[in-house]
Structures are given as C-alpha cells and as structure tokens.
Design a protein around this nucleic acid. Sequence first.
DNA 1: GTCTATAGGCGGATAGAC
DNA 2: GTCTATCCGCCTATAGAC
Lengths: 208, 208
Amino acid sequence: MRQAKPERADRQLSLEKTEAILEGGMQEFLTHGYAATSMDRVAIAAKVSKATVYSHFQDKESLFIALIRRLVEQKFQSIFGAADDQILQTAPQIVLRNFANRALDMGINESQFLNFMRLILGESGRFPQLARAFVSNIEQNAFRRLCYYFTNCPQLKLSDAEATARIFVGAIVHFMIVQEMLHGKDIMPMERDRLIDGLIELIVKERS
Amino acid sequence: MRQAKPERADRQLSLEKTEAILEGGMQEFLTHGYAATSMDRVAIAAKVSKATVYSHFQDKESLFIALIRRLVEQKFQSIFGAADDQILQTAPQIVLRNFANRALDMGINESQFLNFMRLILGESGRFPQLARAFVSNIEQNAFRRLCYYFTNCPQLKLSDAEATARIFVGAIVHFMIVQEMLHGKDIMPMERDRLIDGLIELIVKERS
DNA sequence: GTCTATAGGCGGATAGAC
DNA sequence: GTCTATCCGCCTATAGAC
C-alpha cells in the first residue's frame, strides 16, 4: 500500500540510489532543460536502470520538482555570502563591493549556477511553484541582507532602504544575466568594476 | 535545384502560408518552449499541413531561429519607446519615470513579451546567437537611449553615464523579472513607484 | 529493490498523389 | 505548392523475472 504522493515509497529504497538519481538528474536537467531531458539519460547518468528511477520518483515531473527544490533550498541558497557580524563596522564601500563581487563571482565561476537560473527562468511559466521557491530562498535572501544593512548602517541615510536594496540587487543580477547568460559581454562589454563603482557612487554619497 | 539553406525555397512559396506558419509557430513556441513544441501543433496552429511547414522551413530549428529573429528585429524592438526630440527640454524626473513606466507596462500588459523573454533566457544556452540578437536589438537599444540622455542632459552631472544607464535598465528589468516572470509579487510585493522613486532619487540629486 | 525487456504513443521528417 | 499517409526512432512508463 503506497502513499498518495510517494517521493520516496514507504518501503525502504536505497538512499544511495536516490542520491545518485538526484545527482544524475541534476546534470541532465541543468544541461538540457526540462522537456529535452529523457529519463533514459537520467538513468544512465545516475548509473541505475530506468525502472529504478521510477521506483524512487513517481514520474519525470516529480523528479524534476524534487531536484529543483533541493537545489533551491540547499546547493545555491548561500550564493550571496554568509552573514558577517563585523559588517556594520566596515566602510560601506567595502561592504557593498564585497557583496557585489561575491554575487558576480558565483555567476561566472560556478557554471552550473547560470544553467540553474536559465532553467528556473525558462520554466517559470510551467512550474510557477519552483519560480516562487527560487524567489523565496535566493532573491529574497539577498534582498533581506541588503535591507538589513541599508537600514542599520549609520553612514547611509537612505530615504527608502528597501527600494535601494532592490536597485542594488537588480543592477548586479541583470548585469550577470546580460553579460554572461545572454552572452552580452561580446556585444556590449563593460568591466564589472565600472558597474560596481557606479552603484557605490550613487548610494554612498554625501547628501546635500 | 535548391539553395543550400532555403529558409524560403527559390521557387515561389505562398507568402501567406509562410506568414501563417511563422504566426502559428510563434504561438506554440512562446507558449510551450522550444523542445516541448511539436511541428504537428505548429501546423495545426498555422492551419496548414505539416508537409507545408517543411516546404517553407528546412527543419524545426530553422523555423525557430527565423521566428525568434523576426520577433527580436520587429515585434519587440520598440519596447523602450520611440525617440523623443523634446527629451532634453523635459525635467529628468519626468523623462526617467516615463522610460521606466513604458518598460514595465510592456512586461505587464503584453503577456507575450514575458513569454518571449522566458524563451530567450531559457534557450540562451542552446541558441546563443538568438540571445546575442536579443541583446543587440533590445537591451542595447534601451541602454544606448539612456546613455545618450545621461550624457547630454545638462542637469545631471554623472561621472559615468554608461554605468548609470546599466544600473537604471538593470533595476527596471530585474524588477520585472522577479515580480512578473518569477511571480515574486505575491512573495515580496513592492509598488513599482517605490522602485522608480528610489532610482530617480539616486540619480537626480544635488551633488555636493 | 533492482534489473531487462517491452508496451504504446508521439516526435521529426519525407514520399508520392494531385 | 499543398495535401494525405507513412516511416522510424525515441519518449514515458510499466510488467515481470530475479
């Protein structure tokens, strides 16, 4: 007798196989997208038989959802760096530059992260719940961190910390999207430091 | 005797049919993505037979590329509004607010534009040439317009007009992506005017 | 629990009639 | 030029052996 929605069945299935399937599925889905990924290739990548895949996951969609949720909640959750208690004692220019550089490094060095964002964006129409999970766990994470900083940093007297945080995150993420994901660096090149300097100059400025 | 790459063959094919195929293909590809779209459904949407589709376009990939190029170069090229000769005589607050509102209206009202961006972003790994076409014709368009404005507007003394233009466009487009494409407005709601006011305040400010 | 083998359908692409 | 009919491979999912 099975549960209505057995992501793993109630009888014991090998956790190693479950792990291998999630790992193999991740490779395939991140590389080829949802529709173009076949369960045959997932099974091969996971080094199990296709029937084993279907004994661990109800169907292709369930596997995809489980896998993306894991990436959202674990693997890519900490993109924007860990909290730093010393943060309010550091010059805003340094704090903001570090924040921007950590985010941009992620997009450039972890090539899987670009594919991950591509997948979330591309499937956000058919899998809105995964898009929302991405927003809750990743975008909102960065946003809250910056909001906290902008609200509590004494030197910055911003009239709207939340709007400023959106602008900062948006400028950074959009730069990554255009330059890296959409291959815009060949067409409209710009040093990342110019963007970051521009942002810092707009935000950290003597008020009249 | 046919050309090596006959997007349309050298003998006369009905232009009405070509148009119908492009239109039907657009509906299908924008709704379901590249891999999940079948040529059967394209033919049905275009109200022609599948063989006719293949007489006008070499294969699925050729149809997709022709179709996206057309959207990039025609349908969605003028998102960021037409040029305005009076622009330098208008207060920057008004100019920038209009620019931002036009872009955000496009993402909200023209529901096909969101699907179009989803498709470009999602397929930017497998079709980098289409991603570059998007950047050249749409992103760069908005960027240049703003660069021109920031460079020539007398009231704004920006130390780096290009970086500022990137920040402005990035904040707007990223807001649209998170709120609308990724359904973030349910999770982290924010009035668009707060974002726009924040941007204007950062950019149009008395310098010390 | 995991495998091999297979069912059953839909996919892209084409042959040949008109 | 456009159609109907069809080829054939790959797809998701499952049955049944071990």
